[in-house]
Simulated scan of single mutants.
Amino acid sequence: MGKALIIGAGGVASVVVHKCCQNPEVFEEICIASRTVSKCDALKEKLKEGKTKISTASLDADNTEEVIALINQFKPDIVINVALPYQDLTIMDACLATKVDYLDTANYEPLDTAKFEYKWQWAYKEKFEKAGITAVLGCGFDPGVTGVFSAFAMKHYFDEIKQIDILDANAGDHGYPFATNFNPEINIREITANGSYFEKGQFIETEPLEIKRVYNFPEIGNKDIYLLHHEEMESLALNIKGIEKIRFWMTFSEKYITHLRVLENVGMTSIEPIDFEGQKIVPLQFLKAVLPDPASLGPRTKGKTNIGCIYQGTKNGEDKTYYVYNVCDHEECYKEVGSQAISYTTGVPAMIGAMMVLQKKWKKPGVFNVEEFDPDPFMEALNKWGLPWKEEFAPTLVD
């Protein structure tokens, strides 16, 4: 059916590649491109026996001209961007120049400021419309599946949704005293930034990790959850009818929080360059270099994740609650694709989103967040491709 250029060769990219190769009717040919071409070659070697034709390329995704040249050479039907969020705009520019559809899993953020917002990418709406191509933003799990869940809830169960609580729990244990489950730079920037929640038309800011609750998650039990800012709140606030309040919660253990506070107190989480022995280094980038590579956590991680959304609203004038979630097992994911559940829960939706575009189920000119498309074929695909969901109609609410 189509050709996909996959930019990136980290943990999430590895899952996307595995999943595309499991789905050769849709992904007849893929090209894996990254600055470290040896990682691309290693992935190709692992998967070369399948029906999907695989090629690799060396690519500096910061360089739009290089991306354009590769697109012109490979001629993909879609570009799946699972590189770094700093590179979203250069890749979008290349897709515009070549009139090729685009999909990513994380919003653009500038290198020098920890920002989690869509304004830079939304600014491309008109250009993509004029070019007649589709850009799908944030098609991982959160953002991503959480937006699909929201569109599904709205379509099938509610006339109006008043409140959304997004809950992201990782009960996995990798045995290290401190490590991050995805890119340490992005992960630590996200957690050390101010929290915020949406209420009555505005975002209310909180101190980092200021608001804490305990929630009893299906299949993994009681966990400490902390209120964070997360970019999908920004698009859901615009796209979900009747919304009054949105909060995003993530679990962290006490051990994790203690390590993080110490690192923050000694300046290791700063993104301000410092002079060290005649050269400038960014402390957070140095910390990333000394922490375990998230891709190495797969074989060590045991336990489960639970990510989902609780909705409160009305249907036919009556109050209604609805909880939809996925539980994913780290060890099962590793057995299947050689990655832990954090990469798996991001990579599978990226493949499904690209499939939706190639199958023309999510194909319209412009720049879109996932909740702006029909959720039904995506929800069906989640069950088929490894992220089955469950639902409850009388969940415990977060107070």
Rank of each mutant, 00 (worst) to 15 (best):
S296M: 12
I307G: 04
Q279T: 14
I243Q: 03
H229I: 08
Q279S: 13
T301N: 00
T258G: 09
W249A: 01
D329M: 09
I307N: 10
H229W: 13
I243P: 01
G267D: 06
Y325N: 02
E331T: 12
N316K: 10
F252Q: 00
C309T: 12
L291Q: 08
T321R: 12
Q285K: 15
V290T: 10
G267H: 09
S253A: 12
I257G: 04
P292S: 07
K302N: 04
I225E: 04
L227I: 05
L284C: 05
L287M: 14
C333G: 09
K223N: 14
G313D: 00
I243M: 03
C309H: 05
S296H: 13
K288Y: 01
L297P: 01
K320Q: 14
P283E: 08
E232Y: 02
V324F: 03
V324M: 10
E234M: 12
G317R: 01
I246T: 05
R247E: 12
Y334E: 00
Y311I: 05
T321G: 02
N306T: 11
G278K: 05
E264H: 07
L236S: 06
N316W: 12
K255I: 12
E234I: 15
T305H: 08
G317H: 00
Y325G: 06
E234K: 06
Q312G: 09
L287W: 08
I281Y: 04
N265Y: 14
N326M: 13
L228Q: 02
E232L: 01
F248C: 05
L227Q: 10
G317V: 01
P283W: 07
H330P: 01
L260P: 04
Y226L: 08
P218A: 15
H259R: 02
G308Q: 06
F276Y: 15
M233Y: 01
H230Q: 11
T251H: 06
C309G: 10
L228I: 13
R261G: 07
L284P: 00
N265V: 04
G313I: 02
Y226G: 06
H230V: 11
V282G: 08
E244N: 13
I220F: 07
K320N: 12
D224L: 11
L297T: 05
G242N: 09
N306I: 08
V262D: 05
I310R: 00
M268C: 14
V262N: 08
C328S: 15
I220Q: 05
G313W: 11
C328Y: 09
P299Y: 15
G298A: 06
A237R: 04
Q285S: 14
A295T: 11
G317F: 00
G298Y: 04
K320C: 14
A237L: 02
A237N: 05
D319V: 09
D319E: 14
K320P: 15
I240C: 06
L287G: 05
L284G: 01
E272W: 14
T269V: 02
R261Q: 13
D329Y: 03
K245I: 03
H230T: 09
C333Q: 03
Q312N: 10
I240R: 00
P299N: 13
D275S: 14
N306D: 11
I243W: 00
V266A: 07
K245W: 15
T251W: 07
L260F: 10
G303C: 10
V266E: 10
T269R: 02
E332Y: 05
E264G: 10
N306H: 13
Y311A: 03
M268S: 11
I220T: 13
I307Q: 01
D275F: 15
